[in-house]
Amino acid sequence: MYMAYRENMTERTDEELIARCKNGDRHAFDTLVTRYQERIYWIIKRMVRNHDDAIDLTQDVFVKAYQKITSFREDSGVYTWLYRIGINMSLNHLRKRKLRQLLSFDDLSMEVPSDDQTPSQIHEKEEMRRLISNAIERLPEKQKIVFLLRYYEELPYEDISTILGTSVGGLKANYFHAAKKIEAFVRNAL
């Protein structure tokens, strides 16, 4: 009976789940977490470049969403809302980390993703991954977010516009300039 209920929940639309969440249905909220955790984790991971921090922040995103769900007005899709929370939390995290780095002399510039278990056969590919990661890391904040949302998350410009409050034309320009900078960075590094 319980399992049937859970399975039934996975077929619900986001809107139905949100309505149930607002009525205190925890299973509906669990379904939202399961549905979006990967996407939220990856956008955060690409921003903070650290697995543990990304897991921690992803959890924070959903806890915050849970706390705020009753005030979610559904003007936008739930995933754009979750992305916005995730991006804001990542930016705050990065700013704090930057300040801490400035004040404590920590050197985070050499930080690499913690999940590197690179076998020697794919060493070259791993190097390329780091190169791309470094290129993205050096983008101006806005261009970086636009690039991550468009290229990796494959979001339509309209959704990105909702998340960032920027015009579609401006986003396309940001995306182009981000891609150009990545290209230049990689070209200079090779």
């Binding site: 977490v33 399961t34 955790q37 897991i55 992803t58 959903f62 806890v63 849970y66």
Partner: peptide, 8 residues
């Protein structure tokens, strides 16, 4: 795979 449900 990412699973944060338990943590959340």
């Amino acid at each position: 795979p990412v699973n944060v449900l338990a943590g959340v």
